[in-house]
Simulated assay, not measured.
Amino acid sequence: MTVSIFDHQLPNDSHNLYDVSFYTDNIHTLVTQTPSMVNTWLTETYQIYQSRPHRMIVGLDVEWRPSFNSYQNRVATLQLCVDGRCLIFQLIHAPFIPPSLVNFLGDASLTFVGVGIESDAERLLEDYGLGVANAVDLRVLAAEELGGRELRNAGLRGLVMEVLGKELTKPKRVTMSRWDNMWLTHAQVQYACLDAFLSFEIGKCLNAAG
């Protein structure tokens, strides 16, 4: 697998930018806990894609600190990706949820895609009151479009291989890491970005927007 990350090392605490490379794709990634930066990212996303005739597909994923008992930690990060642009919003450290994000997730003209996205949407609603208007599970879509019932039980790594023909590595040490940390590591940023980006890519290939 060909994957790398470049840290722009911006001189402020409100946000940072990274370029995550996966094979031939380059994903421009914003990591922030600042509502105004989320506003800017969402505004730019609408501006870029409003002239396109097809429904916008958005890759969606969330991460949280693993729990080893019955208590479930709050969602720590929300990842959104459209084409080569990814947002990693550190919900758990944000002073408030910007209305622009509420409206974006609640926009029924968009299609949000992910693996097991219904459970992610439930967590967002329970933890932050964020509703996802139009969620499509990529496992169900892949099973319908490709005719393989076993795909209903596939994970993201399996779908990436089946649909995109590429290998994705998901290190357990990153999966089980402290997603509630104020500063995410390069490995975490790369992992979180790729989950949302590859969800978008699979959704686009399977024509999730219909």
Rank of each mutant, 00 (worst) to 15 (best):
S177W: 00
Q9K: 07
E122N: 13
T43E: 12
V58P: 00
V132Q: 04
R149S: 12
V113W: 03
R123G: 03
L10R: 08
F200A: 01
S199Q: 02
A143R: 04
R123N: 13
V75H: 05
T185M: 05
Y128R: 01
L206C: 02
A133C: 00
D7L: 04
R74K: 15
H54G: 02
Y18T: 02
M176V: 04
A196N: 13
R173F: 10
C86P: 08
L124D: 02
D7H: 08
V38G: 00
T40C: 01
N207P: 04
E201D: 01
V189K: 07
D127E: 09
L87I: 08
Y71H: 10
T40L: 13
Q50H: 13
V132F: 00
G210A: 12
N69G: 14
Y23W: 08
G114W: 05
L105H: 02
V136L: 01
P35M: 12
D7Y: 03
T43Q: 12
E118F: 09
R173A: 13
R74P: 15
S100T: 15
Q190T: 14
N181W: 05
I5H: 02
G155H: 05
D61N: 09
D25L: 15
F6I: 14
T43H: 09
H93Q: 15
M56W: 04
F68A: 05
G158H: 14
Y49C: 07
G203P: 14
G129M: 06
H93L: 12
D7S: 02
Y49N: 12
V136E: 02
V115M: 11
T24H: 13
L87K: 09
P98C: 15
L184K: 00
L17E: 07
M182A: 12
E144K: 08
T40V: 11
V136W: 03
F200P: 04
E162K: 13
Y18G: 06
S4Q: 10
A76S: 15
D107K: 05
Y23M: 06
K170E: 09
L105G: 01
H93Y: 15
L42D: 01
